[in-house]
Write a protein that binds this DNA or RNA. Structure first.
Length: 609
DNA sequence: AACCCGAGCAACCGCATCTCA
DNA sequence: GTGAGATGCGGTTGCTCGGGT
């Protein structure tokens, strides 16, 4: 209860004090429900004291027993909420610090409305600890490490395990990245309030630097996925609909600070990230406005189960690693990974469709590899920050429109990406977040490019034109989208930002390069398709390492499996970067694939610690 | 002084998920 | 395998407060 004297708590207490006994009694009477044994409404100091006393004696949990044992006329849910949000001794009350605010914004850009995860203070991190224990010295983790609870919170490059550091030290390093002492409710309220405020003020929800950071993270993660062991065979066996998107395409999304004109954020209606869809979308595709801009987010299950987490880097679509293998046959596994994959290839015909889900992280955007034509069978529900959503809908002139169907989104994407295969357009429609905005802009940019020129579907690297074309406010004004009711839009920013799309040698070069890559990939896929179907059936799904392929274990003697499952010759390298050397893999994995039981034991032991 | 309105926040609600018998 | 209870999460509601008119 050390933090009970904070400003917020004072306010709570003062409220309680203001309530005269008469008021309290009246309130109590008013809030009695059912048989009169349960009270609703604000908690009194006396109730708090009873609850605190109870928890001190019996510990947390079994909340429904509180009423029974303490005589508190509150339901278990209410007790839990009160304890978690106000009475817990480790709560940090008071206004959010600027650092915390920024952290929330960053987290929201990556995670969406995952308030509880943002608020996570203590984490089950045995999985990452296992990784870090065997991390090579003076090497840096190359990307976020997807692991239960903490995976979304470890930004690129922030984890730098150093030899000699105790695990607890590393754990602290990680924990500090979170928002200790903050409750999900607090964060949620903060965000909602902030969003409303900024919308009213016409400010972007996400500051530009957050945009850049997210983009950089995404780009780096994308690059990180590139296989690093020199074995190029994987390029030939990329799964259908799961090309590795050529990095050159993402360069077009790399915005640099100098790209932003000084008054960028002041452009009426042109705020980068919270522009209503109607103002964003050119009227040419305005009919699809309900479908796009801020894509609804198909979210992973609300909770990640605690017992089955595997370390995965974000930014990597595991379907790239394990083509033609439905990774999520095990629903638990799917939830743990929160894999982004619309490519729900059903090998056996009995794999539940719910196996499709997303990385909750932003990298689903760049690596989503989502098919735009495969039937969408998300077991997850659409989600989008409500305020963003309302903005989108209202601005489209269809305020009562229901949630856009994913099929509609698909249609939009397909229709706009002329000349692209349905597989090479990583749609972030699942994210509904910052990346989705950027992606949508990119999509529209491509669409517009197609309309204006048949030369290429590849947008020009905007950095090329930034210095030439954007010298100040006037330039931005000049690029205002005439079709937008507000005159400017992020769409126009992107689509008009590359006025010299065709005719540039660079453009042509990039186009040829990409088309060539795609062509080769398609050919390779066609050749591999049948063979992969066959070999996928040979995978032992019951093994925890089936995801990793046989040669995950380095130079094992299992040559046959390497041959058959040469899907990824060095998945862990791809997952974690080439710094994670094979020696470490050997160490980490217990030298043999058959040692998984031992590894599991280690993990369990770590968890128990 | 009275009223209005928006901000901030605590609490509730419905649903999903987990646990366990 | 299944169902009931427990728990957790995210969205929403409603209350209080403070500022403006």
């Amino acid at each position: 209860m050390s933090n009970m004297t904070s400003e917020s708590e004072d306010r709570i207490m003062s409220r309680d004090c203001i309530n005269s006994p008469t008021v309290d009694e009246a309130s109590t009477e008013r809030n009695m429900i059912g048989n009169g044994t349960l009270k609703k409404g604000p908690w009194t100091s006396a109730e708090d004291a009873i609850l605190v006393d109870y928890v001190n004696k019996h510990g947390e949990g079994n909340w429904n027993a509180v009423q029974k044992h303490s005589g508190l006329s509150r339901c278990g849910k209410s007790c839990r909420l009160r304890w978690a949000n106000h009475l817990r001794p480790d709560l940090k009350k008071g206004a959010f610090t600027p650092e915390e605010e920024r952290r929330i914004i960053e987290l929201h850009a990556k995670m969406g409305n995952k308030w509880a995860r943002m608020a996570v203070e203590t984490m089950s991190i045995w999985n990452i600890l296992v990784l870090l224990e065997f991390w090579p010295s003076n090497k840096t983790v190359k990307s976020s490490i997807i692991g239960e609870d903490l995976c979304w919170y470890v930004p690129f490059g922030q984890v730098e395990p150093v030899d000699g550091l105790a695990s607890s030290t590393r754990r602290n390093c990680l924990t500090e990245l979170q928002l200790p002492g903050r409750t999900d409710n607090e964060i949620k309220n903060f965000w909602n309030t902030r969003t409303k405020r900024r919308q009213r003020a016409g400010l972007p929800i996400y500051p530009p630097d957050i945009c850049l950071q997210t983009l950089n993270d995404n780009t780096q993660s994308q690059n990180m996925v590139t296989f690093t062991n020199g074995d190029t065979s994987h390029a030939e066996i990329l799964p259908t609909n799961n090309f590795q998107i050529p990095a050159v395409e993402f360069k077009n999304l790399e915005l640099s600070h100098e790209l932003y004109p000084p008054s960028f954020l002041d452009i009426p209606g042109g705020n980068f990230l919270d522009i209503p869809g109607g103002s964003l979308l050119p009227q040419g595709i305005g009919s699809s406005c309900n479908n796009s801009f801020l894509f609804p987010m198909a979210h992973a299950p609300k909770r990640i189960r605690r017992s089955d987490t595997y370390p995965v880097c974000d930014g990597g679509d595991l379907n790239d690693f394990f083509p033609n293998v439905n990774l999520y046959q095990d629903d638990k596994l799917a939830q743990s990974f929160e894999i982004s994959s619309s490519y729900n290839q059903n090998l056996n015909g009995d794999i539940p469709s719910s196996s499709s889900c997303f990385f909750s992280g932003s990298h689903a955007f760049l690596n989503g590899n989502t098919s735009s034509s495969e039937p969408i069978s998300w077991a997850t529900k659409l989600e989008l920050p409500s305020l963003q959503y309302s903005t989108q809908m209202g601005s489209c002139g269809a305020p009562s429109s229901p949630l856009p169907s994913l099929e509609s989104v698909d249609t939009l994407i397909q229709s706009t990406l002329i000349g692209q295969t349905k597989s090479d357009s990583p749609s972030p429609r699942n994210s509904g977040l910052l990346e989705a905005v950027l992606y949508e802009s990119q999509t529209m940019k491509m669409s517009k490019s197609n309309n204006n020129s048949n030369a290429s579907v590849v947008p020009r690297d905007i950095t090329d034109s930034s210095s030439q074309n954007l010298q100040g406010d006037d330039d931005w004004e000049a690029y205002g989208d005439p079709m937008s009711p507000l005159g400017h839009s992020a769409a126009s920013v992107f689509s008009e930002y590359t006025p010299h799309l065709s005719g540039s040698s660079l453009d042509e070069h990039q186009s040829v390069e990409i088309i060539s890559v795609k062509h080769e990939a398609e050919e390779a896929i066609a050749k591999q398709s049948d063979r992969e179907d066959e070999k996928a059936n040979h995978l032992n799904y019951s093994r925890p390492d089936f995801l990793l392929g046989s040669n995950w274990f380095g130079s094992t003697s299992n040559a046959d499996r390497n041959k058959d499952q040469s899907v990824v010759s060095d998945p862990i390298g791809a997952l974690l970067g080439d710094d994670f050397c094979s020696d470490s893999k050997q160490t980490f994995l217990g030298h043999e694939s058959g040692k998984w039981d031992d590894i599991s034991e280690i993990c369990r032991a770590a968890e128990n610690r």
